[in-house]
């Protein structure tokens, strides 16, 4: 949990503001979405942790990849992620985005999500319990405090590599690069 809050608020109020109002993108990417409704309703009440579902990616700064990612969903994930305003954090939920999980030999699921978008943290398990989301959120707080949740910065820095991998899987990206390709690395 978060200790010594008062000092942090004086030191860096903007960061603390981000930390305690994590808007989650409303996007059901996989079967892990089944544990999101219990998390945001009365029993577990994610609002205690400042986690609130946001209607559009432009109002959100936390993206939970809930479960396996098929090739078709990857396209939507990249587009959603690129629309989010900075600072933005991305957490892989469940075993499948880590290494494919149950679907390691499926021809239509990408096995490692972090080859295509930067991931700030993982929640392992199938299905992770709602408590696991809270543990992840509190970890994310610590990481934000220490400037370790730097996925969006890495995305900018190594954008050429990310874009190359995305193009290899999706064959054709119909949107222009988010950052200048020549820059970075």
């Amino acid at each position: 949990m978060d200790r010594g809050q008062m000092a942090k608020w004086f030191k860096d109020p903007v960061k603390m503001g981000h930390k305690y109002s994590l808007g989650v993108v409303y996007f059901a990417t996989g079967c892990g979405i089944i544990e999101i409704p219990p998390t945001i309703t009365t029993r577990w009440d994610a609002e205690r942790f400042g986690v609130v579902p946001a209607a559009t990616p432009r109002h959100a700064n936390l993206f939970l990849i809930t479960g396996y990612v098929s090739v078709k969903t990857l396209r939507a994930i990249i587009r959603t992620y690129e629309q989010m305003p900075e600072p933005k954090y991305l957490i892989g939920f469940g075993s499948c985005p880590i290494n494919g999980g149950m679907y390691w030999d499926s021809y239509n699921t990408i096995n490692s999500l972090d080859k295509y978008v930067p991931v700030d943290g993982w929640i392992a398990g199938c299905m992770p319990r709602p408590e696991a989301i809270f543990i992840a959120v509190t970890h994310l707080w610590t990481m934000i405090d220490k400037d370790m949740a730097d996925g969006y910065k890495r995305y900018k820095k190594y954008y050429r590599q990310y874009r190359r991998n995305q193009e290899r899987v999706l064959q054709h990206l119909e949107w222009p690069p988010l950052y200048p390709i020549g820059e970075g690395e």
Partner: peptide
């Protein structure tokens, strides 16, 4: 559709 296609029936054959 197709955003969740994993090819279950193929995986089960294997």
């Amino acid at each position: 559709p197709g955003f969740l296609h994993r090819g279950f029936e193929k995986l089960m054959e294997m």
